[in-house]
């Protein structure tokens, strides 16, 4: 008998009393008003993210990164990058930010480690919990890209912000690799208090991109 058959056999025998299958009560909140950006900002700041609002994303990114080096995913809008800060693009061979930037290839790990920061878009953000979610779309890139640099700059459009966890789940695709991010890397392992700064990016900047 295979272990699978053995385990499933044991489980079926354990359920021989035919336990009642309850109806799952979905009385928790599932309808929400439009997301309140102030709530999102309050929650982001509470968990030590730095929040910016404005229409000139490139200028804000330039202020944050200064003379530092950036890596970016292949589908990031070029208009989000300050012209004076040449960003290295992480893309499948032959894909680039646009015809004028030429073809690119996957960055090796060392190049990502060496970068001072990464700029991405996001799939969705949750106001109530102060969470941004990345789903590996072309403006967010491979997971490694947002993991190794110590600074993550994430650009959000207001229409990507939902109020609650159920709305975010409804918008997301479970077939994609998803990373839910709520503030910079932190730990509760020392005396059960939240302390920022362990293995993930220690600096999280969120730019809320509002039309001019």
């Amino acid at each position: 008998m295979s272990s699978k058959d053995l385990i499933l056999g044991r489980v079926r025998a354990a359920l021989a009393d035919d336990p009642a299958v309850p109806e799952v009560p979905r009385s928790y909140r599932r309808e929400f008003p439009p997301a309140d950006l102030d709530v999102l900002i309050d929650r982001l700041v509470d968990y030590k993210a730095v929040v910016h609002r404005g229409s000139d994303v490139a200028a804000i990114v330039g202020d944050i990164i200064g003379a530092g080096t950036l890596v970016v995913p292949p589908g990031l809008p070029k208009s989000w990058l300050p012209p004076e800060s040449p960003a290295r693009v992480d893309a499948a061979p032959g894909i680039g930010l646009g015809p004028e930037t030429g073809p690119h290839s996957w960055l090796d790990q060392a190049a990502i480690v060496a970068a001072d920061g990464v700029v991405t878009g996001a799939a969705v953000a949750i106001a109530e919990t102060g969470t941004i979610v990345l789903d590996g779309s072309p403006d967010q890139g491979r997971r490694i890209l947002t993991l190794l640099p110590d600074l993550h700059i994430c650009v959000l459009r207001p229409d990507q912000v939902v109020a609650s966890v159920p709305e975010a789940i409804a918008r997301l695709d479970p077939a994609r690799p998803l990373t839910w991010i709520s503030g910079p890397s932190a730990t509760s392992d020392i005396e059960l208090n939240r302390v920022e700064g362990v293995h993930g990016p220690r600096n999280l900047h969120v730019i809320i991109w509002e039309a001019a």
Partner: peptide, 17 residues
């Protein structure tokens, strides 16, 4: 916490990632 700092979700293998 309202949400823990990181949650990862994956389905099998994602080519290239």
């Amino acid at each position: 916490e309202r949400m823990n700092p990181y949650t990862s979700m994956w389905q099998g293998v994602t080519p290239g990632d």
